[in-house]
Computed example of a mutant assay.
Amino acid sequence: MSYLKNKIAIVTGVSRLKGIGAAICQELAEDGYHLFFTYWTPYDQTMPWSIQSDEPIKLKEELLKKGVKVGCMELDLTLDDAPTQLLNQVCEELGEPDILINNAAYSTSNDYSNLTLEDLDKHYFVNIRATTLVSTTFAKRFQKKTGGRIVNLTSGQFKGPMPGEVAYATTKGAIDALTITLSAEVAALGITVNAVNPGPTDTGWMTEELKEQLTPMFPFGRVGMPRDVAKTIKFLISEEANWITGQIIHSEGGFKR
């Protein structure tokens, strides 16, 4: 437990109790990590799965029961000063963070025939700009010389096409390139950088019909669940993974496209 003493992790994009972000927080809290998470309910409220306004607070209450320190804030990551706002708030409430997990994402369906400039920009500002700037702000402020971790969420764009999701595929695909280059730049600071592709994961957006279509593509006979990727991330931020960096981990249960 000495490695975990006072370890502080930031997780972005944690609005929904059924989401990957919430599962990451729950998994890390069980191991004793202190947590700070961000959420942005206006986005989820426009999505088919929607959100109850009290879900982030309910999650905070659940995490506190596990005996760890927890902070959170509603934050629009597309704002110019969002990275600084975030790091300042984390330091004020919990202390200097050791871990950053870039889970926040923007996703809507579109293809070449109906893609608009506005929609592409919305994907870019969250999926690429926010992830990059929060990561570089975290790295510039990291002073501990060892044990730093950045984990990005990707979606396996280079494993096959994603028709009907051209903006999402384009912007999330750039996460792989960011991960590889940033890992080389910040290694001297004592920070590892990796990305995780969870594959199709049931966070409440899957219909029963879609689950039936996807299940035969998984050799384990089920679709991915949020805790599956959370466990992978828990390993990547652990001391045992301090020699793993610049990697894109396809933690998708053998999913065959």
Score class of each variant (00 low, 15 high):
50 S>G: 08
64 L>T: 14
70 V>P: 11
80 D>T: 15
64 L>W: 11
66 K>Y: 03
57 I>F: 11
60 K>M: 06
49 W>R: 09
55 E>W: 02
62 E>Q: 09
45 Q>G: 10
87 L>M: 05
78 T>R: 08
48 P>C: 04
65 K>P: 04
64 L>R: 15
78 T>N: 10
60 K>F: 00
51 I>R: 00
73 M>E: 08
63 L>F: 14
45 Q>S: 09
85 Q>T: 08
65 K>C: 05
69 K>W: 13
69 K>V: 01
76 D>A: 07
58 K>I: 14
48 P>S: 03
67 G>A: 13
62 E>V: 07
79 L>K: 15
68 V>C: 04
46 T>S: 09
81 D>S: 11
59 L>M: 06
80 D>G: 10
51 I>A: 05
53 S>R: 08
85 Q>A: 03
82 A>S: 09
68 V>N: 00
79 L>S: 12
89 Q>K: 13
88 N>V: 00
67 G>R: 14
81 D>M: 12
85 Q>H: 01
60 K>G: 04
70 V>E: 06
70 V>T: 09
54 D>I: 10
66 K>M: 09
67 G>I: 09
47 M>Q: 10
83 P>D: 08
61 E>A: 11
46 T>D: 11
77 L>T: 01
52 Q>M: 06
52 Q>S: 14
49 W>G: 06
83 P>H: 12
47 M>H: 01
70 V>L: 12
52 Q>A: 12
51 I>E: 02
55 E>K: 02
73 M>K: 11
53 S>A: 12
